[in-house]
Design a protein around this nucleic acid. Structure first.
Length: 472
RNA sequence: GCCCCCAUGGUCUAGCGGUCAGGACGCCUGCCUUUCACGCAGGAGAUCACCGGUUCGAAUCCGGUUGGGGGUACCA
């Protein structure tokens, strides 16, 4: 702790001494935007050209819970849970900003003593009045008083700027900045002051966060300067928006990590997708594992444009990651997701037909819970156009298929098609509807074989009865 | 109002002074085929926001405009 940090390194492709942090404020669930910020920090710490001894950077987790009104332990747990689910492990923390009040106060005293900060009782109204008098591009400057809130003194001239890794040079004229309040009248500290002190004490070398923090940066820079230490390197990420081009929020459906998980997305796919939003990894490939992402991630290549969260693309990527898992692992995840067991067979025959974990059960539930009730499908496929006759023929062939393997089921059914001179679908679809209840299912031979001979015949009989009852 | 950031097909992006402006998602067509998908092969879709410069030459550099976004709290 303390100001003894040595010279801060600039982002120069060497990472062995890199210390980054993710510092969410627990005022709600972890958003996909926050998740991406966490991910980028993690990628930075874990990947890139490693130091001479192959060291990784350090990823620090800090909870900015100084907003007592809105920060809750439940939200903290939700955020940690989301981070774990995304496989973003941290090396230090979580450190709670609220527990560092003593150190914050100490730093505050230092600034007060050096005259870089001063007590001021000026109210928001007085600040307005000041600006109306001096012009709106003129920042507020207060008079030092003996008590009240504490404001940080901005220089009157010159500019405060920094070299943002993703945006390049950003400058603010000091004269345009209000002297910001860094401590309330009751002594509690404000965000812009606390972050700087915390980043300093944690030895953070690179601050990577959302671009909504750009205009906070000069104030934090000023705190570092007042404390007499060099600031970290900054990188501001573009924000993420919903499909309507507006800020991402609960209204846009799956906006939080938890919601994505509930919707059947894989952490692998979510990591991959959100990494792509705003980072040009490659011109011709975009399917990556977390490790590959870490290896390829380049902070200076991060896009400056805000991106819109596109769930369709996430679905697509999820399908690829899902198929990459392999049957055993996919089965494990699906059993966890659905709360069912003995799913392996169903997974085998449906894996290539689903894009999310949520797609699975509707497709295969008929194998476990009986046919789905889809009256329209029944009417259209079985109660018309030779449906009953073909189904009867199929039943007969299936009844003598021994043993009841996929191969024999296929041979039996194809034999019917040939004998009848019908189009394949005219035989297969009635069977499908008879056993599944709907026109959509995994492959028919595989489904029938998995269902078993007895159950298949029973379902066909039931369908036949039902069709007969309809006719008469 | 003031300060700051951004601008390539619907979406995510590649591009970094000379390209038929490339890829991915989505969409359409065909193949595969028992449905749905997967996979494969094609296709439609971009006055590179606009206007002015610089240059033999600009999506690429500069300026302005417009549009979008962020900040402007004794919130984080």
């Amino acid at each position: 702790m303390g100001a003894d940090q040595g010279p801060r390194r600039h982002y120069d492709g060497r990472w062995s001494d890199m210390r980054v942090r993710f510092a969410p404020s627990p005022t709600g669930a972890l958003h996909i935007g926050g998740a991406r910020t966490a991910l980028y920090n993690w990628l930075l710490a874990r990947g890139g050209p490693h130091g001479p001894n192959g060291e990784e950077g350090t990823f620090v987790l800090r909870i900015e819970d100084t907003d007592r009104e809105r920060s809750t332990p439940e939200n903290v747990e939700q955020i940690l849970d989301a981070l774990r689910w995304l496989n973003l492990d941290w090396d230090e923390g979580p450190v709670f900003q609220s527990q560092r009040a003593g150190r914050h106060r100490e730093a505050l005293e230092e600034l007060l003593a050096s005259g870089r900060a001063y007590h001021s009782s000026a109210t928001a109204q007085e600040v307005r009045a000041y600006k109306e008098r001096h012009g709106w591009e003129r920042g507020f400057r207060g008079e030092p008083e003996s008590a009240g809130a504490v404001r940080l003194r901005y220089p009157d001239a010159g500019e405060t700027g920094f070299d943002d890794v993703v945006r390049g040079k950003i400058r603010f004229a000091n004269s345009s900045r209000d002297d910001p309040v860094i401590a309330r009248a009751d002594g509690s500290l404000l965000y812009n002051f606390a972050v700087a002190v915390d980043d300093l004490d944690a030895g953070i070398t690179h601050v990577v966060r959302g671009e909504d923090h750009i205009s906070n940066t000069p104030t934090q820079l000023l705190v570092f300067d007042a404390l007499g230490v060099p600031p970290p390197v900054y990188a501001h990420l573009p924000l993420l928006y919903g499909p309507d081009g507006r800020k991402l929020s609960k209204r846009h459906g799956a906006a939080s990590v938890q919601e994505l998980r509930a919707a059947g997305y894989l952490p692998e796919a979510v990591d991959n997708y959100i990494a792509l939003l705003g980072a040009g990894f490659s011109a011709d490939e975009e399917h990556f594992s977390l490790q590959e992402l870490a290896k390829r991630f380049r902070l200076e290549r991060v896009s400056k444009n805000p991106a819109i969260f596109d769930e369709q693309k996430l679905r697509h990527m999820n399908g690829r990651h899902l198929r990459e898992l392999g049957i055993d692992e996919l089965t494990r995840r699906l059993e966890e997701y659905t709360g069912r067991h003995g799913l392996r067979g169903a997974v085998e025959i449906s894996a290539e037909k689903i894009q999310t974990l949520a797609d699975f059960w509707p497709l295969v539930s008929f194998l476990f819970d009986g046919p789905v009730d889809d009256a329209r499908a029944f009417q259209k496929v079985i109660c018309s156009d030779g449906g009953v006759e073909n189904l009867e023929a199929a039943r007969e062939a299936l009844a003598s298929a021994e043993p009841f393997t996929v191969e024999n089921v296929e041979a039996a059914l194809r034999g019917v098609v040939e004998a009848l001179g019908a189009k394949p679908g005219k035989v297969f679809q009635p069977v499908r509807v008879a056993i599944a209840g709907t026109t959509v299912s995994p492959g028919i031979f595989e489904s029938v074989a998995l269902l078993g001979q007895e159950e298949t015949l029973a379902r066909i009989d039931r369908a036949l009865d039902r069709a007969g009852a309809r006719k008469s």
